[in-house]
Design a protein around this nucleic acid. Sequence first.
DNA 1: AGTGCGGCCTGTCCGC
DNA 2: TGCGGACAGGCCGCAC
Length: 271
Amino acid sequence: MPELPEVETTAQGVRPYVEGRMIRRVIVRERRLRWPVPRGLTRILSGLKILSVSRRAKYILLDTEKGVLMIHLGMSGRLRVVPASTPPEKHDHLDIVLSSGKCLRFHDPRRFGSVLWVKGLPDEHPLLASLGPEPFDPALDASYLFDLSRGRTLTIKQFIMDGKVIVGVGNIYASEALFRAGIRPGRAAGRVTRKGFADLLKAIREVLGEAIEAGGTTLRDYSRVTGEPGYFEQSLNVYEREGLACVNCGVSIQRKIIGQRASYYCPQCQA
DNA sequence: AGTGCGGCCTGTCCGC
DNA sequence: TGCGGACAGGCCGCAC
C-alpha cells in the first residue's frame, strides 16, 4: 500500500525516464478510477513535454507547459516504465506513451487511485487546496501540531493521519511513529503534550525518511518502479506484529481498531 | 466545526 | 475443491 515513502520512491524511480520527454499519446483502458479519468486526455496531453516530476502529499505530479497531471496510487496503484510495445496485463488501466518509445503504465487492481488533469496550479485543485504541510517542510514544527490539536478529542493517530493536519502519514507509519515517540495511538490528540508532539514529529520524520531510504515498505501490493521490493518492512517495529514481543521491552504487541483502522502498539512502551 | 462512518474496489485468506 | 464472507486500506463526502 503506497504511503508517502512509496510515492516518493515511485516519483524518483520514474523521473529519469519521463522528465524532458514528450508525450506521444495516452491510452486509457479503464476510466473508472477513484475519480473518472478525464475524457480527451490524449488530445490534451499529446505533444506536451513533461517538464518535471514532483510529489505533493501522496500525489505524483507531472508538470507540463499546459497544466499538471496528478496521479494518486490509492492503495494498490503502481507506476512502471516499460517499452510501449509491452502487452498490457489485467488492471493496466492507463499508458502515457513517451517519445522515447517507453511508456509510463498505471496499474491498479482496486482502482482507488486516480489520474487527474489540472490546468492551473496544482495547489489550487480542490483535492490539494486544503492539505496540510509536508512532513519535511522546514517551516513545520511541533508547536504547529500542538496548537492545532488543542481541544481535539479524536485520537492522536487519527489526528496525524488527517491530511489537513499533515500529509503523508498513512496507517503503517502512524503506528510506527507513535511507537517510536512512546505515545499510545488511542490517546486524545488534545491530551498530547508539547514534548509529545516534539517527539512525534521527530519520529514521523525519522520513520518516513528511513522508509524512503529503504525504497518503501513492500506489503501486499506495493513494489518499486523496477519491480523490486522495498526493504522497510524488516524495520517495522509494531505494524502487523500483534502478539509478538516488543523489540524494546518484550511485552506482547497489541492490535486495536482505531477509526476503523488496524493500529498496533506496545502497552508497556507507549503511554 | 468537529467527529464518525459509509462507500468505493479486488486479491487473499479463512472456514465450512 | 468451491464458495461465501471478512478483511485490508486512502480518503472523500455525507450525516449528526
